[in-house]
Design a protein around this nucleic acid. Structure first.
Lengths: 196, 196, 196, 196
DNA sequence: AATGAATGAGCGTTCATTCAT
DNA sequence: AATGAATGAACGCTCATTCAT
């Protein structure tokens, strides 16, 4: 859960610790979860024993790198939540951030969707409703302030908005779209509907 | 590509062929693509050699079971396309069928999203736009007959509709929803928008 | 040891028995001892069970086909031994027959040299001195009748003559030589020496 | 191609590398090419992974051990070729060395004759004419200096000499013969002929 | 009796993990 | 403490043999 090395670590130990993470990020990004510890240690410029010393085993490395990603994403979501930005803009921000995250952490999402993560990590992430609840609470605000209709099935609406992220990952045509522009159009459909 | 055994097979061979498939479906459904041939052969009540006789190698088994799923889904889509059913109902059918498929073939979709399929199968499925084009053509009809607005970004709208399927896989609340009902509500938002 | 089917066999059984042998000769000749029973049964136009019924197991088939070859060769040697042909001509015949055998039964000799035969067959053939003794006895005759010198190391001389056969198998240039002609030249060297 | 470990290897790694080779030589010598990696690793006192680390796969081990043998033999041949030893003595040396090699590398020659080597190694050795050309060039010298008669079919004579090596492998009586003595007698027959 | 499908021990190979240096 | 070589359980696949049809 922390992006800083465990406290009380000697300076040179920290350096190795960071090297491992750099190698792991690189290897997982390029090769997905199939990356071997050999790949990681080579990219890290570090012996395999060092990985074990700092992270216990492969799952430990995976857990750490994935937690980094989650924190990064959740921090963005939190940032999007605060401030006195109008709720509609925060909704737009949430979506944009999600699409950005996909760009940066595609392999995490693929691993998650493929249920390939170590059991506990998989479960923890599946139970993490941070983004879902952020979206939901924005939608509630929007209902409260009269922007959205009162009979809206909010959980389903939140699901609909989040689902765009998943599709984004795999759609072949996403190269052609600009993420920010796509978000605008999606919100337009969401808000005003497709009906003539 | 066929769900019936190759012709000219002895009656008892067909029985074993089916046993392998039953074991494979069961093993893959429970364990995902990581299912070992040992798992499959045990669930099938069959020796491992039998799997090789009928399917050549592990990828052959995967390919077969996945083709079954694709055909099943595509047949449903095709059925939903024909007839003189009004386009809006056909759209609803497409979505409903997709959600049903997820229920039945969750592991296939997970494997696909996790990019874990043998390279050629993965590519074939990723290039298969059957469902995407079905949705797109219905949307085009709906624009043509004036039901949908002319300025709609159709590819994005199609993406939005399909993406629901992906979200459906992972959403915890789907137990509580009835698929058919959820489809109605999703289409309601899609058509009429969320705006008050 | 017999080239005729076991007695008391029904006519159709004999037909199958022969089919197996035809398939086995063909498969071993083309593929060497690595020929699989599947190969044999396909070339024989016979089910694999039939092979087992008649020959017990793979070693049984190997043993049989090899015994055929040995008998064929030994019969030739015997034929070369009898008659009132002068001993020098019989020596020439022995050599010529050996080279012919190599042409026909190359795979047997390779299997023998590679020590790949079932243990008992390997041992039996290695202990078979038929050809060696035939050559030796001709050489003894030739010493007795004064053609060869009395101080000749006969076993070594016999070895020398037989060894030509082995080399013949593997020498790249043997395509260019006519076997009969080569035999004449080899015997010329053997008898008269290479010295100027 | 080298009998020394790759440079830059840690001292303990070299020890394991040598262990693998010792195990491999032992296993191949006793069991022929059928020796399993398990056999090798057990004789080496080493895990199977160690074999793979150093030699990549089974063929790599085979290739290495066989190259050792070839180098050893070819070095002997080269040593026999140089110097101002008279050509007849060099011929004798060639033959003696060959018989010695058979003693030391019997399994290699068996594997070669049985055509059981990995395809590329088999081809490389079959195309290696080092020994053949050494013998041939000595014979040419002997013709040139008038020792041998001018009408000799040199390739056939070379074949004859080399073939002794093959026969040596399988002849039961070789225990009784001393190799050096046998070589003398063989050359005596070759040079002076068997004729009285 | 013939068939050929089913069997499964056995083999080569991989890679997360351990441990001597 | 770091290194990277060693380990070996585990997996996919083969093919001689068995056995239901």
């Amino acid at each position: 859960m922390t992006r800083t090395p465990p406290p009380g670590m000697r300076a040179d130990a920290i350096a190795y610790y960071e090297k491992v993470l750099i190698g792991a990020r690189s290897a997982f990004a390029d090769l997905g979860l199939d990356a071997e510890l050999k790949d990681i240690s080579e990219r890290a410029g570090v012996g395999m024993g060092t990985i074990y010393r700092h992270f216990g085993n492969k799952d430990g490395v995976i857990a750490h790198v994935i937690q980094e990603a989650r924190e990064d994403i959740n921090n963005s979501v939190a940032a999007a939540k605060e401030a006195d930005v109008p709720p509609l803009d925060r909704l737009r921000n949430c979506l944009t951030l999600s699409l950005d995250s996909v760009e940066r952490y595609g392999w995490v999402i693929e691993a998650l969707l493929g249920r390939r993560l170590p059991r506990d990590i998989q479960a923890e992430i599946e139970n993490d409703r941070t983004l879902g609840e952020a979206v939901l609470s924005i939608l509630e605000e929007l209902v409260a302030d009269g922007t959205l209709r009162k009979d809206l099935d909010l959980p389903l609406a939140a699901l609909l908005i989040q689902s765009v992220v998943l599709a984004w990952i795999f759609d072949r045509s996403r190269e052609e779209h600009d993420a920010a522009e796509a978000v605008d159009r999606i919100l337009d459909i969401f808000l005003n509907g497709a009906r003539a």
